[in-house]
Design a protein around this nucleic acid. Structure first.
Lengths: 150, 150
DNA sequence: TGATGATCGTCAAGAATCTTGACTAACTTC
DNA sequence: GAAGTTAGTCAAGATTCTTGACGATCATCA
């Protein structure tokens, strides 16, 4: 005897997030990238091919610069990025993707695009477009919830 | 000069999940529940008022029974649940919510409902309904992605 | 009834991730 | 050149999940 309750927005989002992550990293592993972990993606996915500073990556990925430093260390270890000194600022170092890094990002994007395409075919173009647009609006709005306080 | 990329499904879901969690736990803290942490919610939200066994909670919440054991320890410490021995099975213990536990669940549900209502008003009833239905389908479908493998 | 296997809850170790505070070196502004 | 800001790092610890194992109890069936 089980009491299953109606799923609320929080549960749905959490479950979907975990399921997406499972498929993404499982397929990346099959496609030659078995060592990338989720947090590597948060940095790689915002890293321009021309490179960026660690502080810029922290801002773009929404994480603390301390974590970004560690993640970049691991990405260097994995061979996905290089650290180059920034000629315009001796404090700074440019993080630049290697060929393997560019390949990883391309494959990750392709996998996510394929996942989206699958859902688009299940739901129909129009419904999927409505869904995605609504999700963008809700995400943007929810990220500003603190301005609604008091 | 910033290179912002188009947000994919993974980034949107991740960002929305974090933002929802931030508002939920911030408001719960304001409403008399300052000590609950996200993982407590995964168990409390599936706990029937009549109680359930730890193994059942593990299944319902989708987590390992080891974690559920620890979470229940913390919930007992916080005064949200009691452990009662199960008369029908001497191995098992029933986890039963206290009055405080029932109150926490009610407040969490109300907060999430209010958040959903806010987004419903921004998007319009019909669009929101389409969004929620599509999210349910996609979540269900994505959770079964492994059956698509080879 | 007695043996066998499954289930219930727990102990323990450790991996992965994020948070917070502080600090040095280098840069910018006035 | 003095003062404040910014880039990157060191360090400690909080939070959450994973994996493997175990004793106690229960259920099944020969």
């Amino acid at each position: 005897m089980t009491i299953e309750r109606e799923a609320d927005l929080g549960m749905l989002i959490g479950q979907l997030g975990r399921a997406l992550q499972d498929e993404l990293f499982s397929r990346l592993a099959e496609q030659g990238h078995p060592h990338v972990r989720p947090r590597h993606g948060t940095v790689l996915s915002v890293l321009p091919e021309s490179g960026a500073r660690a502080t810029e990556l922290a801002r773009l990925s929404g994480q603390h610069k301390q974590i970004v430093g560690v993640i970049v260390d691991e990405l260097v270890e994995l061979g996905y990025v290089r650290r180059e000194s920034d000629p315009s600022d001796r404090r700074a170092k440019l993080v630049v993707p290697t060929e393997a890094g560019v390949d990883e990002v391309a494959k990750a994007r392709a996998i996510l695009a394929a996942i989206e395409q699958r859902h688009r075919e299940e739901l129909g173009d129009e419904t999927y477009r409505t869904f995605k647009t609504a999700l963008e609006h809700i995400t943007h709005s929810q990220r500003g919830w603190q301005s609604l306080q008091r």
